[in-house]
């Protein structure tokens, strides 16, 4: 159970965070929610697709890291091998909370129950009580996530409005002969993109969405890289 407390330089002066424990939080995730501002970093290694939240049926944007539940192909021998780690992980253990004391303003909070808190590791504050580079970095990740989440929802709403999303099914045969069919994933529909009107294209261009759509479509090629990765790992085993 999380316990969120407003971050305070005095109260939390001696807290240390183990960055490896944070990183390990995605060791068993085969998909990770992502926001728009991450797209250009994600496309280098991850397929970016859409999936439905199982509780609400709402679409979310995710980076695919594996083909089965609990399988992150970017986690090998106890550490992450990816170039970029999504904000969904790197903002931990910090969250945004409401501060009752200061007029319900948003404040940065720390989860005091997080398993990443430890005796040794990264400090949050220096001797003068100023934020360390580590804390500043985590804070900027949190901010990007908080800003990016509603932006991503708006982007998805527009895709739905223009009927640009389509279901994709992955029928994969791995190098060792095993087969896997993955459903429940969605992508922008290239054919529908071609049917958009001029004014719709201009709207997408001016809002910056057109570029993001192209990045998402390009990222689908990473599925092959992911299959390749799986095949290589199977050979080693």
């Amino acid at each position: 159970m999380k316990n969120l407390v407003a971050l305070d330089p005095q109260v939390h002066r001696d807290i240390r965070i183990n960055p490896h424990t944070i990183e390990a939080k995605w060791a068993k995730l085969n998909m990770v929610p992502v926001v728009l501002s991450e797209f250009s970093k994600l496309v280098v290694q991850f397929p970016i697709v859409f999936s439905k939240n199982i509780e609400t049926g709402q679409f979310v944007c995710v980076a695919l890291t594996g083909f089965e539940k609990g399988q992150n192909l970017f986690w090998e021998n106890g550490s992450s091998t990816s170039i970029y780690t999504p904000l969904h992980i790197t903002h931990l253990p910090f969250y945004v909370g409401q501060d009752e004391q200061s007029n319900n303003n948003s404040v940065i909070c720390i989860d005091t129950q997080s398993s990443a808190l430890s005796e040794q590791g990264e400090a949050l504050f220096d001797v003068e009580g100023n934020a360390t580079p580590y804390l500043k970095s985590a804070q900027s990740h949190l901010q990007a996530l908080v800003e990016g989440t509603p932006q991503t929802e708006t982007f998805i709403s527009l895709l739905l409005k223009y009927k640009l999303l389509t279901q994709i099914t992955l029928d994969i045969t791995f190098g060792n002969g095993t087969k896997n069919t993955i459903k429940g994933l969605y992508s922008v529909d290239e054919e529908r993109m071609e049917k958009l009107s001029e004014s719709q294209i201009i709207e997408l261009q001016q809002s910056g969405y057109l570029q993001l759509i192209h990045i998402q479509l390009a990222s689908l090629g990473q599925i092959y890289a992911l299959i390749n990765k799986k095949n290589k790992m199977d050979l080693i085993e």
Partner: peptide, 11 residues
């Protein structure tokens, strides 16, 4: 209740 809150998707 969920339909009331979230609705069904068209796809």
């Amino acid at each position: 209740d969920k339909v009331n809150q979230y609705g069904f998707s068209a796809l």
